[in-house]
Amino acid sequence: MKLQIRKALKSDISTILNFIKLLADYEKLSHEVVATPQLLEEQIFGDKSPVQVLIAELDSKPVGFALYFYNFSTFLGRKGIYLEDLFVLPETRGQGVGKSLLQALAVQAVAEGCGRVEWSVLDWNKPAIDFYKSIGAGPMDEWTVYRLTGENLKAFAGGAK
């Protein structure tokens, strides 16, 4: 089988949304998906969008994706890549697709002088954790992610004067 990693095109929007829904289902978070094809097209392919997507294809069939954007490390004084989502179809796992997507990001990060590539993983996702450790990634156990969303975000923003 021939594996190819390529940048996503606007014509991939339905594929990207399908991967997002499959990932959400795997993570038991389907109820949180409100993205639409129109919203994704605007946010991923709109002017000055920081979001980028790689598509993995086996024999020209999409089998996975990586959605990412740039962040910045003040300590390193360099930008980095934040991998928001990585998903590979279950029937094609174990064939190097996920590793190839991550390697493509690593190559890009090194070529662009980035200081790091980072991502989050659910603590119960042992297969993913084992895979990430196998490529040399390490957890940041001393950090806790905080998030402000939905009504709490609006309420907090509304309190700013």
Rank of each mutant, 00 (worst) to 15 (best):
K61L: 12
G158C: 12
E57W: 01
V88G: 04
L89E: 12
R78L: 14
Q103N: 11
N18D: 15
E27I: 03
E57R: 07
L122Q: 08
I13Q: 05
L76R: 09
L40Y: 00
L86W: 05
T36I: 11
W119V: 01
I55V: 10
G96N: 09
F69T: 03
P50I: 12
K99V: 00
L148G: 02
V121E: 04
Y82H: 02
K21S: 11
S60H: 15
L23V: 06
N71M: 08
D130W: 00
E41T: 14
Y132K: 02
M140E: 01
Y70L: 09
L102G: 04
V33L: 13
G150S: 05
Y26D: 14
A66C: 11
E27Y: 02
S60L: 08
L40T: 00
A157W: 07
S60K: 15
G64A: 11
L122H: 07
I135R: 00
S120M: 14
W124A: 00
V34H: 13
A104T: 14
P90I: 10
F45H: 09
Q43D: 14
E57S: 13
Q38N: 10
A157M: 11
F45W: 06
K133N: 14
K2P: 15
Q103R: 10
T149A: 08
G150E: 06
Q95A: 12
N18W: 07
I16T: 11
P90G: 04
I5P: 10
K161M: 05
P90M: 02
V34G: 05
K154P: 01
Y146Q: 00
I16W: 05
F156M: 10
G158I: 10
E112K: 11
W124H: 08
I129A: 03
L17N: 01
K79F: 01
Y70K: 13
L102C: 10
V97N: 02
S134W: 09
L29H: 01
A56K: 15
L86C: 06
S30Q: 13
V145A: 12
A56F: 14
V121S: 07
S73E: 08
Q4R: 15
I129S: 04
C114P: 04
